[in-house]
Write a protein that binds this DNA or RNA. Structure first.
Lengths: 326, 326
DNA sequence: ATGAAAGCGCTAACAC
DNA sequence: GTGTTAGCGCTTTCAT
C-alpha cells in the first residue's frame, strides 16, 4: 500500500494525501480530509519512512556506539539516550564496539550509510580521531575525550576532581595506605582519575607508592585480582576503585580474605551504577549522572542537527554518595 | 557525493559504478574498476543506504522491543541480538517499552515506518495480539508467549520445569517451608513459574500455603518487600524467587534481619544474570541461556526474512547452577 | 564492457 | 482546494 494507491481509492492526488498525513492540511476541505483518513485507517496504511527520508534527507535516527550494553554503566546511558530520543521523535541504532577501534570505525561507516542524523560515541578509550575528522555527521562524545578538528559536542564529568574527592574522603576517614585500582592509564579517563588520586595524596602529605597502584581493566575481575595483588604486596586500609565494577570485585576479594569492610579496609568506587546500592556492603561511590549523560547527549546532538547550534562541551557534576563500604 | 558524481569524475555511467560497488563486476574491465575505486577512495564516497533500501525494499535493519535495557536480563539479550545481527550484516534499533502496551504499539508502528526487515519482541507481559496480527513484518517473540494468528517465531524456555526444578532442589536440601516471590501471575510467564513451584510442592507431599506466596514485580525492591512480608506473616526456610533481581532483594532483606543464608533460609533465583555470581552469597539459580536467546532470536528472524523459512518455536534448556545461596 | 532509462514511495514548488 | 510533476540516490533490465 502506497500513498498513490490511497490517493486512487479516495479519488484525490497523492499530494493531497501527503498533505493530510503530514498535517499540512489547512487548505484541505474537511470532507476530503475525513475521506482520506478513513481510507488510511481502513487499509491499515503505513507510510514508507525510507522514501520520506530519501526525499527529506533526514532519517530521524541516531546511532549510539558504546563498548558494551551489558555493562550497567553503558546500558544506563543507552536508556537515557533512547528515552530522550523517543521524546524528540528519533529512534536509536545500537552498536557495541568492545572498545575496539576496528569495530568503531566499521560502525561509523555503517551509520553514515544508513544516513543517521547524528552519532553518539561513548567509550573509555581514545584514538580514532582520523575517522572522526572524515565524518560529517553531527557527533557528540560522552565520557570520552578525543582531540579532534571536527566540531563535536562533548558530555563530560570532571574525573580528576571526582577521584580527588574520593581519595580525600578516604583520607578524612582515617586511611593512610590507600590503594588505587583502575584501568590502564593510557586512556585519558583513567589517567585523569589517577591524577586526582595522586593529587589528593600529595595535598594531604601522603606519598605515592607504586606498589599500591594496580592498573588493568574496568571489570569486576580486575577489581578482584587487583585487590588480591595489593593485599599480597603491600599494606592497605582503603582502596579507591576506578569504577564500581572494580569496587565490586574488590569487595569480593576482601570478603574472601575475611577482611572487614569498612572497618579494616574502606572501599570507594566511581559511577554509582544501579546495582551499587544493593551490594553488601552498599557501595560508597562518586556518582555520575549516568542516565542524564545519555539524555543530555542526545539533546545536544539533536540541537546540533536541527538548529545547527553547537554547544561544544557540557560538564556535569559528580557527587559523593556515602554508603556502607567506607 | 553521489554515485552519479563519482560516475562523472570517472567518465563512466552510474550503472558501472553501482556494479563495481556491489561486486557485480565480472564484466567490468580491471582498468575502469581501478579508476572508479580510486575515485571513491579519494573522494571518501559513502553510498546512500536509504536510496538503496528504497530501491531494494529492505533495510538490513531489525528492531528490538524490550521493557528496559537497564535490566541486566534484557541488556544481555540485546547484546546477543546485536552481535548476531552484526555478523549477518544487520543493524538493530533499540526500543524500550517499560512493558507498556501503548509504547509497544507505538514502536511497532515506528519500526514498520522505518521499514525494518524484522522485529524482535521481548517482554514478560502478554496482550497486544491485535497489533501483531496487523503487522506483516517478520517477528520473533523472546521469553514471551502471546497467542497470535500471525506466524511468529518464538524463543522460549520451559519456565514451569525450571521453577519445578528450583523448588525441588530446595526441598532436596531440606526445606519444608518454601516461599514464592515473583511477579504478578496474570502474566503467563509468572503463572508458569508458579505452577512449577506448586507442582514441586505437591509432588513432594508439601502443601501450598497462600501465606507463603508474594506476587508483585520482577525487581530488587519487590524481592526485598516480599521477603519482609513473608518473614512477618509466616515461617520460611527457603525461597524460590521468580528472577535473580527478586533474589537479590530477598538476600538484602534476610541480611538486614540477620538471618543466615543458606543456613537458616535458602534462596534460589531464576535467570542467572551476569551479576548473580558476584552477589554475596553467590546466587544459586536456574540459568537461562540469555545471551544465546538474543542470538537465536535474530538468527531465526533473519532466516524468516531471507529464506522465508519458518521455524516456529525453539525451546532452550535451563540448568540449575548451584552456588552459595542454597 | 558499458550505458540509458525506468522506477522504488515520497514531498513540495508551482499550477490551476 | 486540489493536482501535476520533478526529483531524492540508487539498482537493474535491456541495449549496444
Amino acid at each position: 500500500m502506497t500513498i498513490k494507491r490511497i490517493a486512487e481509492l479516495a479519488n484525490v492526488s497523492s499530494a493531497t494525501v501527503s498533505k493530510i498525513i503530514n498535517g499540512k492540511d489547512k487548505h484541505i476541505s474537511e470532507a476530503t480530509r475525513q475521506k482520506v483518513l478513513g481510507i488510511i485507517e481502513r487499509e491499515g496504511y503505513i507510510p514508507n519512512g525510507i522514501a520520506k527520508s530519501l526525499k527529506m534527507k533526514r532519517t530521524k535516527t541516531i546511532g549510539i556506539i558504546m563498548p558494551d550494553v551489558m555493562n550497567l554503566f553503558f546500558s544506563e546511558i543507552a536508556r537515557g539516550a533512547e528515552d530522550a530520543a523517543e521524546r524528540k521523535g528519533y529512534s536509536v541504532i545500537l552498536c557495541n564496539s568492545d572498545n575496539k577501534q576496528s569495530k568503531e570505525e566499521k560502525y561509523i561507516q555503517i551509520l553514515q550509510e544508513k544516513m543517521v542524523d547524528g552519532i553518539i560515541l561513548t567509550a573509555s578509550e581514545s584514538s580514532i580521531s582520523k575517522s572522526l575528522d572524515r565524518c560529517n555527521t553531527p557527533m557528540v562524545l560522552v565520557d570520552r575525550d578525543i582531540a579532534s578538528d571536527k566540531k563535536v559536542g562533548r558530555i563530560v564529568v570532571n574525573n580528576e576532581e571526582g577521584a580527588y574527592n574520593a581519595t580525600n574522603f578516604l583520607i578524612k576517614k582515617g586511611c593512610k595506605n590507600i590503594g588505587f585500582i583502575s584501568a590502564d592509564s593510557k586512556t585519558k579517563l583513567s589517567a585523569a582519575r589517577l591524577r586526582g588520586y595522586e593529587k589528593a595524596l600529595i595535598d594531604n602529605g601522603l606519598k605515592i607508592d607504586k606498589e599500591k597502584i594496580f592498573l588493568q581493566n574496568y571489570t569486576i575481575e580486575s577489581g578482584y585480582q587487583g585487590t588480591m595483588a595489593l593485599l599480597m604486596q603491600t599494606e592497605i586500609d582503603g582502596v579507591y576503585c576506578g569504577n564500581d565494577l572494580i569496587a565490586i570485585g574488590a569487595i569480593k576479594a576482601l570478603k574472601e580474605k575475611n577482611i572487614k569492610i569498612p572497618k579494616e579496609v574502606k572501599i570507594i568506587g566511581f559511577d554509582d551504577i544501579s546495582i551499587s546500592q544493593y551490594i553488601d556492603p552498599p557501595l560508597t561511590t562518586i556518582k555520575q549522572p549516568i542516565y542524564q549523560m545519555g539524555e543530555e547527549a542526545v539533546e545536544m546532538l539533536i540541537s546540533m542537527i536541527e538548529e545547527k547550534s553547537i554547544k561544544m562541551t557540557k560538564v556535569l557534576e559528580t557527587i559523593l554518595v556515602e554508603r556502607g563500604s567506607s
